[in-house]
Measured scan of single mutants.
Amino acid sequence: AEEIWQQSVIGDYLARFKNDRVKALKAMEMTWNNMEKKEKLMWIKKAAED
């Protein structure tokens, strides 16, 4: 689920960090860890469908 979420937001994060992939990935990891369980559930369901 986290991978699907990352694939959907990586472009936004890379743009925000001027294509600094290391910073973008760290920010994504922090965002994922801070997400509410119900927000993650949507992505977990999406992962299950694929």
Rank of each mutant, 00 (worst) to 15 (best):
A1Y: 04
A1V: 06
A1C: 05
A1G: 14
A1E: 03
A1T: 03
E2V: 11
E2M: 14
E2G: 04
E3H: 12
E3I: 10
E3A: 14
E3Y: 14
I4T: 07
I4P: 02
W5V: 00
Q6S: 09
Q6V: 09
Q6T: 07
Q6A: 13
Q6K: 10
Q6W: 06
Q6Y: 07
Q7S: 10
Q7E: 09
Q7L: 14
Q7R: 13
S8T: 10
S8Y: 13
S8K: 05
S8P: 00
S8R: 04
V9H: 05
V9M: 06
V9S: 03
I10A: 05
I10S: 04
I10L: 11
G11D: 14
G11R: 12
G11T: 13
D12F: 08
D12K: 07
D12W: 08
D12I: 10
D12M: 08
D12A: 08
D12Y: 08
Y13Q: 01
Y13V: 03
Y13M: 03
Y13L: 03
Y13K: 00
L14H: 02
A15P: 05
A15E: 14
A15C: 10
A15Q: 11
A15F: 09
A15I: 13
R16M: 14
R16H: 09
R16I: 11
F17Y: 11
F17P: 01
F17V: 03
F17Q: 02
F17D: 02
F17K: 01
K18M: 14
K18Y: 12
K18P: 08
N19Q: 11
N19V: 02
N19W: 08
D20Q: 03
D20W: 02
D20F: 02
D20A: 02
D20P: 00
R21C: 14
R21L: 13
V22E: 14
V22F: 09
K23T: 11
K23F: 04
K23M: 13
K23S: 11
A24P: 00
A24F: 02
A24G: 01
L25K: 08
L25H: 09
L25W: 07
L25S: 06
K26A: 13
K26F: 10
K26E: 14
K26W: 07
K26P: 02
A27R: 02
A27M: 08
A27T: 05
A27D: 05
A27F: 07
A27G: 04
A27Y: 06
A27H: 06
M28Y: 01
M28C: 01
M28Q: 01
M28N: 01
M28G: 00
E29S: 08
E29A: 10
E29K: 09
E29I: 09
M30L: 12
M30S: 10
M30Q: 14
M30A: 15
M30C: 10
T31L: 06
T31F: 14
T31I: 10
W32M: 00
N33M: 12
N33S: 11
N33H: 10
N33G: 08
N33I: 10
N34I: 05
N34C: 08
M35Q: 01
M35A: 01
M35F: 03
M35V: 01
E36N: 11
E36Y: 02
E36D: 14
E36L: 04
K37W: 15
K38I: 10
K38D: 15
K38V: 09
E39K: 03
E39T: 04
E39N: 04
E39S: 03
K40F: 02
K40T: 02
K40M: 03
K40G: 01
L41P: 02
L41M: 10
L41C: 14
L41I: 07
M42C: 14
M42I: 15
W43G: 03
I44K: 06
I44F: 10
K45P: 05
K45H: 08
K46S: 06
K46D: 04
K46L: 13
A47T: 04
A47Q: 05
A47N: 04
A47S: 06
A47V: 06
A47R: 02
A47W: 14
A47D: 05
A47M: 05
A48V: 10
A48S: 11
A48G: 09
E49N: 10
E49V: 09
E49G: 12
E49S: 08
D50W: 05
D50P: 05
D50Q: 15
